[in-house]
Amino acid sequence: MKQFVEKMKGKSAYAYLIPCFLVFAVFLFYPFVKTIYLSLYKTDKLGQAKLFVGLENYTDLLTSESFYNSLFVTLLFVVIVVVGSMLIGLIGAVLCSKAFPGIRVFSTSYALPMAIASSGAAMIFKIILNPTIGILNKLTGLDINWIADPKYALICVAVLTAWLNSGINFLYFSAGLGNIDESIYERASVDGATGIQKFFRLTLPGLSPIMFYTLVVNIIQAFQSFGQIKILTSGGPGESTNVIVYSIYRDAFFNYKFGSAAAQSVVLFLIIMALTLVMFKVEKKGVKY
């Protein structure tokens, strides 16, 4: 008996993990396993697994032109969004790192996108981009049907998403800049460095840890963008903005092909995981703490 109690003492720690584990199990592990399970079946309209088909859903995907289009669109989308949102955030943060009158107004406006719901922003953009009454065409004097033209639709959605994501990046970068010791800039000035040299030699390396973190988060976030695409373009015109997440949604809830949707989810998961692992490998070389 005594031995048993002794043994349990060390293991009581696991008991504290139970609540958290339960939440994870219900909302993460179960759906995850279920997705993998569904990806091996053909389903009925209610999403119940009916017929075991093995890897057929996957082979179908890999031979489907639409899926490759989705992958390409997603990749392009992610690149534009990540580069765009990080640039906007970084430039905003650097501009706002110096104190000047009215800085609060500027800081707030740079951070504001963080507080805007993606669907709300999409509605506003829909009006801005409207070919007849939209302010963009009015201001530029162009006559482009931004959302309905396959050439521009993806860029429009991506720029909107970049702007939406830039708010949180601005906050991260501002915090990162605040962590850089002011006196190294002073030393650099006395040493004879110009503003540009200071930015590339001091600011960027100083930001590299936070930059890496933001990059990982941004890539994952960009892969998962949905609301703005749904509202602004619904994957169209044609399939020009049909990113994987939207394709999953469409397959599952319009075409009732839950199996195929689940297979796409698994592929998306693999892509994101692989990317994240690669980034952590690169981090060890490139990021200096």
Partner: peptide
């Protein structure tokens, strides 16, 4: 200039 906190470039 040599600073009180040395101001070495940490990276």
């Amino acid at each position: 200039m040599v600073f009180q906190n040395y101001a070495l470039y940490p990276q």
